[in-house]
Amino acid sequence: MVASLILLRHGQTDYNAEGRFQGQADIPLNELGRSQARAAAEALAGSGIDRIVSSDLARAYETAQALAARTGAGLEADPLLREISVGEWQGRTRSEIAEIWPDQLAAWQSGVDMRPPGGESRRESSARVVAAIREIVAGAGAEETLAVVAHGAVLRGAAEELLGLGREGAGYLGVMANCGYGVLTPRRDTWVLRSWGASSDPAAIA
């Protein structure tokens, strides 16, 4: 089992700024997102990161590259860490989606585990990402600190699964802001949440 697991969300993109569903669209970081990535790398520089595994989508991989450059850790890409697929909602704002799929959007916003048209459900995407994380952890050394760089929805879902949350009667985690991060450490057959949603915003770190 690893020493610790750091989950880092990518920096801001133009789709984030415009309130668009990104899904698996390969949108790069914008100028603010690149600044956030550098700030996150600086904030995590002393964490002893040995290995970084990133979603292969540009916004996550660019964020991971900044972290690798600052820490010297090895960097790999894994397509299983991609964001949830939102199908026909991809690239649209909530108001645009509400005009075409009002009932489905209302169900989504209420927390129903449903699939956007042509997409995957939260549970499906979480299962995909948590399986990838478990495989990454299983192949790591006992004293390694791993960083997984990915996307807001799937990192939340994966963390909830690792912690046994998100089920009926249990609590939920919030979605991290751009370049927010969480830290988990192992304990026997489970995980301990040490922090969640720590800010990597340049203004907060300066």
Results as ranks from 00 to 15, higher is better:
H10N: 09
D26I: 08
A69V: 06
A142Q: 06
Q12D: 02
A142W: 04
L57C: 10
Q22I: 03
A77L: 12
R9L: 00
R9Q: 00
A37Q: 13
P186H: 03
S110E: 15
V53S: 03
S121W: 00
R51C: 12
L184W: 10
A153K: 10
L173A: 12
I97M: 05
I27G: 08
G157D: 04
D14M: 01
M176D: 00
L162C: 03
S85A: 15
L80M: 10
L29I: 08
L75D: 11
Q90K: 11
S4L: 01
A170T: 15
A73E: 05
G48A: 05
A45I: 03
G141N: 03
L8I: 00
E168S: 14
T63V: 05
V192Y: 04
A3P: 00
A58D: 13
P28K: 09
G111C: 04
R123I: 03
R51A: 08
S95M: 07
R194N: 14
R122Y: 07
G182Q: 03
A140L: 02
H10A: 01
T93H: 12
G74P: 08
T63C: 10
G197E: 09
I6N: 01
D50S: 11
R188W: 07
R82K: 14
L8N: 00
M1L: 02
E160K: 03
A158E: 02
G74D: 11
M114K: 10
R134G: 14
Q24S: 13
A37S: 15
G197D: 09
G164K: 08
P102L: 12
Q24T: 15
G152F: 03
R34Y: 04
V112A: 11
G46K: 10
L32F: 06
I100C: 00
M176V: 01
A158Q: 04
A159W: 04
N178E: 06
G33Q: 06
E120Q: 02
W89S: 06
A98T: 13
G87E: 07
W101F: 12
R70N: 04
I100G: 00
L5N: 13
V137N: 14
E135Q: 15
D113A: 13
S110Y: 12
A153D: 10
L165Y: 12
G87Q: 09
T145K: 02
L155Y: 00
S95F: 06
Y172Q: 15
T185A: 09
G157P: 02
R92C: 05
R9N: 00
G182R: 07
S125D: 00
V149M: 05
T185L: 03
G171I: 04
P102V: 08
S199E: 01
G48S: 09
S55R: 10
G87R: 09
D201Y: 13
G91R: 12
R128P: 08
A60G: 04
E160M: 06
L44Q: 12
G46T: 07
R94D: 13
A142K: 09
Q24A: 11
G174I: 01
E99M: 06
I205S: 09
A140K: 02
Q36N: 14
A131S: 13
L8K: 02
D189K: 07
A203F: 03
Y181P: 10
L5A: 09
E62S: 07
L57E: 04
D50L: 04
A69K: 10
M114D: 05
R20I: 01
R167L: 09
L7R: 09
A132V: 12
S110K: 15
R122Q: 11
R34V: 05
E168A: 14
R94A: 14
A159I: 02
N16D: 12
A106N: 15
